[in-house]
Design a binder for these strands. Structure first.
Lengths: 265, 265
DNA sequence: CGGAACTTTGACACATATCAAAGTGTGTGG
DNA sequence: CCACACACTTTGATATGTGTCAAAGTTCCG
């Protein structure tokens, strides 16, 4: 998904994953049992990040199930009964929401270590669709188990609250983006955000392979694909980035950050 | 704030309030002690809605503090240390978030029974400003107490998760609004949403006093005040609503809902 | 190798922003 | 209680950013 370089960092961002067991029912692909203590995501996984070793031992009692989701497959869709949240083990997902009439919008992207599916907790059913953009793996965490677990491990409870709160804060940022930024700013913010998230996972922050079409990017940013394409070209002309199809290289990070600054209001 | 009519309904919407004690530190105005069992909001208050009588007795042990916030006063602002969430007892609030440069946007409105301040849980500091748009009262719920309480009352825990999840879902809706709707649709959705929320609180769904300026409405909807004004006029000409300054009457609810339908994509 | 899916670029249209000015309401102090 | 100032709203004329439509170019994948 991007150029691998050696780094391991805690997510500074919105969502993040948990680990655990009990068989789900989605049934698209292979499932494995897994335990938090043997999960190689532990340093990325926000829920686990806050846990002591002995707390992880408790968490191990709950065995969460791994699930593979192939590119283009749906992890869950609007209206599906909610019974688990998901931690991304590897790969890349998008979530989309739709209006009554057919209109649809990408409302989020999720990568390794991030947590998916919290939209279903309140309503009891999922309220968006989540689709793998490349072959991916998730850890399915039955929410009822998680609630029990959280009862025994106060720090896990705090982590869960944090994850949900950070999702809210992240979405405030998207609201600002959609409500107050012009097309160039939106794209700059988007690229910088991806860059940071890749960096946090040990990938190159300056060169990555977007697994998104111009249309998906545009949908997320409230723009049309042609506009996205034009601005990519424009940024390239100005020497801020270089684009070749889906491969993006950030040439002048500082200038890209400055795109945000050149406005009124 | 709106024409009173006799109704009592559980919120069908995003956020909702809790009740409780322990003195805070904000210090703008008067504080009272209060208990959930004597709170007249119990039927509106999402946290309490899910509780049995005996659970409410447990909750009573925690005494949350009431706080008055006068029109124009700030409940909390960006950067303030987070230590409590707030249930609106009465009145009306707006939250605003700001970009690095001065740009600012209204990101939410809150009325009786709704819960404020969850943006601070993850970061440990508030990430937006919350201001009373009329003389208001809140119930300050120290988050540490709430976490203990939640530990003893599983159904309260579930409610807390639901409230946060519903906030996330609500924000997805705002993202769709900002990303995919034209100005008329945005305003129609906004008015219908307010209408439902007023109705749920026993106020008239068809006539209410917006306590917002055109600019605040526009800020929330990603529009300029002139555009908001024009569309109010336009809706009025078409006989969908009647507006006189801040007083809005929804004349043709069905037609207002139909505004959403007349598009492509 | 061929076709489908995606991207780029151009010309033009249109929704909303911007600028401007007049109108209306509201609160305060005399 | 009036009057004045200020804040907000309305409306018009015009500007502009992004959408729309169209066509050619590129890449991907079977």
């Amino acid at each position: 998904m991007a150029t691998k370089t050696p780094v391991r960092t805690i997510l500074a961002r919105s969502r993040a994953p948990v680990e655990s067991a009990i068989a789900p029912k989605t049934g698209k692909v292979a499932r494995f049992k897994s335990m938090c203590s043997t999960c190689n995501l532990r340093e990325l996984c926000l829920p686990c990040c806050g846990l002591t070793r002995s707390e992880i031992d408790v968490a191990n009692r709950a065995v969460f199930s791994r699930q593979r989701v192939r590119r283009g497959e749906t992890l869950y869709r609007t209206g599906d009964r909610f019974d688990a949240i998901y931690a991304v083990r590897n790969g890349f997902f998008k979530s989309t929401a739709q209006l009554d009439n057919g209109r649809e919008q990408v409302i989020g992207f999720f990568m390794t270590g991030e947590v998916l599916g919290m939209d279903g907790i309140g309503p009891g059913r999922h309220t968006c669709n989540t689709i793998a953009l490349e072959d991916s793996g998730v850890c399915a965490i039955p929410f009822s188990s998680l609630q029990e677990l959280v009862h025994e491990i106060p720090s896990l409870q705090r982590q869960l609250h944090k994850i949900m709160s950070c999702e809210i804060v992240h979405e405030h940022g998207v609201m600002l983006l959609l409500g107050r930024m012009n097309a160039e700013e939106r794209l700059a913010v988007f690229l910088l955000n991806l860059s940071k998230r890749f960096a946090a996972r040990g990938y190159s922050p300056s060169e990555f392979n977007l697994r998104l079409t111009r249309e998906e990017i545009g949908s997320y940013l409230g723009l049309k694909l042609e506009t996205v394409s034009r601005i990519f070209s424009h940024f390239q002309q100005e020497g801020l980035i270089s684009v070749r199809q889906k491969l993006v290289r950030i040439v002048d990070n500082a200038a890209l950050e400055r795109v945000m600054g050149r406005e009124k209001d």
